[in-house]
Structure formats: structure tokens, C-alpha cells
């Protein structure tokens, strides 16, 4: 049982020491955790896993996320997991993902709130008279295929990887915050001490090892679905086949890769 675990340890240390990307990726492919996952089978594609110890090739993947509004219970576990996994500052205005609550009143007024990003859940609203509909909406970086943030970065410190993930180079970012202005979704923030832009990475460090993003891992109701776009065997593609899908602010032509099912028109 525990016999396999030291292997994992070694592999992780290896990967930490390997300098080049290629060497690293090889090491990471050899990671025992991945092998472990192959044997067990995970949410990720079976044939992806079958490659197992071979190196991770970003060109063979293209990631996206699905969110089912009808399943979100607003528990905020995703927000907590994101902060824990990615060492996100624990203040009330630095979030890589957060949950919003919409309360649409019968008179057409819509109230939205997100106390502390929803990390501690939501207090029961007072005065619920006249509520027409109410629901939760998890938000995160949309990893747009046509990302305005990447377009405006003056130095090339934010970029789209070959597998479709928008990342920030923390050692190169000059902290001009133009990307924060350009993001229509409020998905970026300036790290209060590092003074560089930060955002959701789709937990890229997990994804290349065959794990799902932390928020997806901990979502108790399966409201978040991670997978590959345009691959029929992907859980995300299945989600997109069986649901009517919307994206946020489609008129801006950012081409988001976070797909919402059962999204209300009031959500912006």
C-alpha cells in the first residue's frame, strides 16, 4: 500500500531539480502519481492516460471547463481549494475563482453578491420576498481562445500555451496592469506582494500530471467539468453535447473556453 509512495517522492524531487522543460516534462511523465492514475483510471481520457510514462506533449491537448449552474450549491469549496492549491493571497480581493450569487426579484431587479468570493459560503439572504429566481455562478478565467489580456500585454509576460491555457510569467511581468483592464471578466488581479498579475492557470501544474484542477477535484456536486475541447471522449465534450451551452459576454468575441450550462441571461 505505502510501498509505492516513496517512488512518488523521488519523482517529485527529480522534477524539481531538472532544469530544462523537456527534461522536466520527461520526469513529470515518469511521475509515479501518473502511473498510479493510469492503473486506476480517472476522469481524464483513457487513451491519454495510456500514454502514461511518455512525455507530456501540449500539442495533443486543448483544455476547457464546463460549469453546470443547476448543480452549484454555493458551498465555496472551489474557492477554498483554489486558494490552498495555488497559494492565492487570503484577502477579499484576490481570487482566481470565486462564486457569485444572483437573486432576481419579481420586479426585475437583480441583486448580485459574492461575500469574500463565497469562500465561506453564503449567508441566507434576508427579505427573500418577491424572489423570482436565485442561483449561484462560479467564475474563473475563461481561458479565451481570443484573449484580450494576451493581446495587450506589452512585454509578452502573459501568453496562451499550445494546449490552450492562458498563463502569466511571474518572473517577466512588469506589473503594468493593462491585462487586468483588458479582461472583461475581472479574472485577474495584482498580487499584493509580488506586484505582478495573477490569474487562474487551470491548475496547469496538475493538468500536465494528469490531475484535474483543484476546484474541479473538490466540487462536491460535479458542477465543474474539466476536459478537452473537440475530443469526443472528453467529459467536457460530453457535457457540451448534452447541455445547451452559453459563454460569458459572447458579444466581445473573446471566445471563452469556460462553458456554462443553464446560464441565466442576467449573468454578466
Amino acid at each position: 500500500m505505502a510501498g509505492e509512495l516513496p517512488t512518488t517522492d523521488e519523482a517529485t524531487q527529480d522534477s524539481g531539480a531538472a532544469p530544462g522543460r523537456r527534461a522536466f516534462v520527461t520526469a513529470c511523465g515518469a511521475l509515479a502519481v501518473t502511473t498510479l492514475l493510469v492503473e486506476l483510471g480517472t476522469d481524464l481520457e483513457a487513451e491519454e492516460q495510456a500514454e502514461g510514462p511518455e512525455r507530456y506533449d501540449p500539442r495533443e491537448h486543448y483544455y476547457g471547463m464546463g460549469i453546470d449552474i443547476d448543480k452549484c450549491i454555493g458551498c465555496g469549496r472551489c474557492v477554498e481549494a483554489c486558494k490552498a492549491e495555488n497559494d492565492v493571497p487570503r484577502d477579499a480581493h484576490s481570487f482566481r475563482t470565486w462564486v457569485e450569487r444572483y437573486v432576481i426579484h419579481a420586479d426585475g431587479e437583480t441583486a448580485v453578491d459574492s461575500p469574500s468570493g463565497g469562500i465561506e459560503g453564503f449567508p441566507e439572504p434576508t427579505g427573500e420576498a418577491g424572489v423570482l429566481r436565485t442561483f449561484f455562478v462560479p467564475k474563473l478565467c475563461n481561458h479565451c481562445a481570443n484573449p484580450p489580456c494576451v493581446q495587450v500585454c506589452p512585454v509578452g509576460a502573459t501568453f496562451t500555451t499550445e494546449d490552450g491555457v492562458v498563463l502569466v510569467d511571474e518572473e517577466y511581468c512588469i506589473g503594468c496592469r493593462y491585462c487586468i483592464q483588458a479582461c472583461p471578466y475581472g479574472a485577474r488581479f495584482l498580487h499584493p506582494t509580488r506586484r505582478t498579475a495573477q490569474k487562474c492557470t487551470f491548475c496547469y501544474h496538475r493538468v500536465v500530471r494528469g490531475l484535474v484542477p483543484a476546484c474541479v477535484e473538490v466540487c462536491p456536486t460535479g458542477a465543474r467539468i474539466f476536459g478537452e475541447v473537440h475530443r469526443r471522449s472528453s467529459p467536457l465534450e460530453r457535457f457540451r453535447r448534452f447541455n445547451e451551452i452559453q459563454v460569458l459576454k459572447p458579444h466581445l468575441n473573446t471566445d471563452p473556453k469556460v462553458f456554462y450550462a443553464n446560464l441565466d441571461g442576467q449573468v454578466r
Binding site: 477579499a92 481570487f95 448580485v112 471578466y185 485577474r188
Partner: peptide, 8 residues
Amino acid sequence: YVYPNEFE
């Protein structure tokens, strides 16, 4: 409502 990251 203001997105949490827009606080500042």
C-alpha cells in the same frame, strides 16, 4: 456588485 478582483 463589483467583481471581487475589482475592489481596488
